[in-house]
C-alpha cells in the first residue's frame, strides 16, 4: 500500500505542470543564474583545476549570466537529470549540448537557434578496421543513456545498443573490449583522440547534430533575455572566440 502511494505521488509529480519555475525576476532577485551541464563532457564541460567547471558550455553559461547582470552558478548533473531538474525548477538554464527531439520539446523550452553545429560520429578503437555501423555486424555499440546518440541507434534499429551513464564509462568500455564502437559527436571524439584515447573516427558524419540551450517551460521573459544575450554574443564575436578557444575551430555557424 505504501509503495502504491509513493507510485501515485511520483505519477502526480510527473504529470503536474511545473510550478516552481524561476522567471527572470526571480533570477534577478536571487542575483544568480543556475546553469546545469554535464561537467564530464570535454571539451564542452569539464572540471577546472580549482574545482569549478570549464569548457565551451561553461564559458557560454558564464557569459550569458554576465549579460543578464547576475552571477553564474554552474551545476554538474548526469545527462538524464538535466531535463528533470529544469522541470523541477532546480536549474534555470541548461547549456548542456542538448539536441532537439520531439520528446524533449514537450518537456522543456528550446531557444530559437542552435548555439553550435556538430555531427554524430561513429568512433571505434584505433585497432579496429570498421568503417561504418553496418560493418560492426551487431557487436555492442556504446552510447550515453538518454542522449540523442542512443535515440539515433534505436531509431536505426541497431540490434546491440549498450547504454552507459556517460562518455567516460564508454571510453572505459571500449578500452576493455566491452563495446566495439561508440556514437558521440565529432568534436567530443576528436578531443578524446587528441587527449590520448586509442580511438579512431570511423566513416563520415552520420547525422547533423545541432545543440540548443534549454530552459523550463513558461518562462518567456527569461527566454527572451537569454536569446538577447546569445544574439549579442554572436554579434560581438564572443561565441566564435569561445569556440576557437575550446574546440579549435568555429562551429557556431552552420557548416557550408
Amino acid at each position: 500500500m505504501l509503495n502504491s502511494r509513493l507510485l501515485l505521488l511520483s505519477t502526480l509529480a510527473l504529470t503536474a505542470t511545473s510550478v516552481a519555475h524561476a522567471e527572470l525576476a526571480d533570477v534577478r532577485k536571487r542575483g544568480e543564474l543556475r546553469v546545469v551541464m554535464s561537467g564530464e563532457y570535454p571539451p564542452f564541460s569539464q572540471p577546472a583545476p580549482d574545482g569549478s567547471l570549464t569548457g565551451f558550455d561553461a564559458d557560454v553559461a558564464r557569459e550569458i549570466a554576465k549579460r543578464l547582470g547576475v552571477r553564474a552558478r554552474l551545476i554538474k548533473a548526469e545527462f538524464p537529470s538535466i531535463i528533470a531538474g529544469l522541470q523541477a525548477g532546480q536549474f534555470d538554464l541548461a547549456v548542456a549540448s542538448q539536441s532537439k527531439t520531439p520528446e524533449r520539446e514537450r518537456a522543456v523550452d528550446f531557444l530559437s537557434r542552435p548555439y553550435y553545429y556538430d555531427g554524430l560520429q561513429l568512433v571505434v578503437p584505433a585497432s579496429s578496421s570498421v568503417r561504418s555501423l553496418a560493418g560492426l555486424g551487431g557487436k555492442p555499440v556504446a552510447v550515453a543513456q538518454g542522449t540523442i546518440f542512443e535515440k539515433f541507434l534505436r531509431d536505426r534499429k541497431y540490434s546491440n545498443v549498450a547504454t552507459y551513464s556517460g562518455e567516460q564509462e564508454i571510453f572505459l568500455a571500449l578500452g576493455a573490449g566491452r563495446a566495439a564502437g561508440m556514437v558521440t559527436t565529432r568534436t567530443v571524439g576528436s578531443v578524446a583522440i587528441k587527449n590520448g584515447q586509442k580511438l579512431r573516427l570511423a566513416g563520415p558524419v552520420l547525422q547533423q547534430d545541432n545543440p540548443y540551450i534549454t530552459l523550463g517551460k513558461n518562462q518567456p521573459r527569461l527566454k527572451a533575455a537569454v536569446e538577447k544575450a546569445m544574439a549579442s554574443m554572436r554579434a560581438d564575436g564572443t561565441l566564435k572566440r569561445l569556440s576557437l578557444k575550446y574546440l579549435g575551430s568555429d562551429i557556431t555557424v552552420p557548416a557550408k
Partner: peptide
C-alpha cells in the same frame, strides 16, 4: 523524489 518531484 526529494530533488526532482517534491519541488513540483
Amino acid at each position: 523524489f526529494l530533488f526532482f518531484a517534491l519541488p513540483q
